[in-house]
């Protein structure tokens, strides 16, 4: 579906992307992670044909992006990072225009627009001018226009920025339903929000691909993998927690007093021991969760490794 072979991108003498290669298959949902300035948006722009690589080859749905840029643009749906804005057009007229450009007309066009509007729950704002909508709604319109033609490859750049928890839940449901139909690539700095969505993670740092791995593997590299976070109203006996078998250490949350994270040694499971300790001591625990690993830490660590 998507093949990237040794692409490099220069801006003047500055190297934005450095010899990057990977492939993506149909129905994959890929998280493109990396800190600010890592080259995520540059990579998406190159795939979408917004800019051309200085070297290497990009192929989408069998079309070379350099030799067949318009076929590639037909195969790709792209939600850009910045706000989608227009000083006069309404949401409906934007979707109408995009549908017409994508080659739909008549009943099929109406059906496509209705489907996209239903998926993104845009009906309350269909007649509203795009310019007056708040940022999360504009983002929804941007996603709607990207999925309208059921592309082979959907590129989303920071789609969850500014979303409320309810909107985030809806977004996750949308991506899950879309991942059956297309390849999805989501660039984001809010990695943990996407941990339940993506099957594979690409980590970029300084224009290089520093990790290409299944998402659970990436989570496993976190020191918080299989850690247990618990919060209590009364002070906890940290010594008792520390001496439990398989415990690597304890972290106290500076921002939430009474909340501690108990880290596990690699390959060890500490959750049952902590549960047993809570029961035996009779602690009033307000929350208890088993962590799958903090992607922020892993991505930050990987980024530090390549930094000169």
């Amino acid at each position: 579906m998507l093949e990237i072979d040794g692409i490099t991108k220069y801006l003047g003498k500055r190297k934005l992307i450095h010899n990057l290669s990977f492939c993506a298959q149909r129905q994959e949902c890929i998280g493109l992670f990396g800190e600010s300035g890592a080259g995520k948006t540059t990579l998406l722009n190159l795939i979408a044909g917004l800019s051309t690589p200085s070297g290497g080859r990009i192929s989408v749905a069998g079309f070379n992006a350099q030799t067949h840029p318009y076929q590639v643009r037909e195969a790709v749906g792209y939600q850009l990072q910045g706000d989608l804005n227009h000083h006069r057009m309404s949401v409906k007229s934007v979707l109408n225009f995009i549908a017409a450009v994508r080659g739909f007309s008549g009943a099929e066009k109406r059906e496509r627009i209705n489907k996209a509007a239903t998926r993104l729950e845009l009906f309350p704002v269909m007649d509203a001018p795009l310019a007056v909508l708040p940022m999360p709604w504009k983002r929804k319109v941007a996603i709607a226009q990207a999925v309208l033609h059921t592309p082979h490859l959907l590129l989303l750049d920071e789609p969850t920025e500014g979303m409320s928890p309810e909107q985030l839940l809806q977004f996750k449901m949308l991506i899950k339903s879309l991942s059956d139909e297309m390849t999805i690539m989501i660039a984001s700095r809010r990695y943990d929000e996407l941990s339940t969505l993506c099957t594979r993670a690409l980590v970029m740092a300084d224009g290089q691909l520093v990790a290409d791995t299944p998402l659970p593997e990436l989570q496993r590299n976190s020191r918080h993998y299989h850690a247990v976070t618990l919060a209590a109203q009364t002070p906890l006996d940290l010594l008792a927690l520390a001496v439990l078998p398989g415990v690597a250490g304890i972290e106290e949350d500076q921002h939430a007093p009474g909340t501690v994270t108990v880290l596990a040694l690699p390959g060890q499971t500490i959750y049952p021991h902590i549960n047993a300790l809570i029961a035996s001591r009779g602690w009033h625990i307000t929350s208890l969760s088993l962590e799958q690993g903090r992607l922020n830490d892993v991505v930050h660590h990987l980024s530090q490794e390549v930094r000169p």
Binding site: L80, H87, I98
Partner: peptide
């Protein structure tokens, strides 16, 4: 080219299959 004055819409047009 008044559409092109809206930065977001201008970039969006570039992603569409229009020569």
């Amino acid at each position: 080219w008044s559409d092109e004055h809206d930065a977001g819409f201008h970039t969006l047009l570039k992603t569409l299959p229009i020569t």
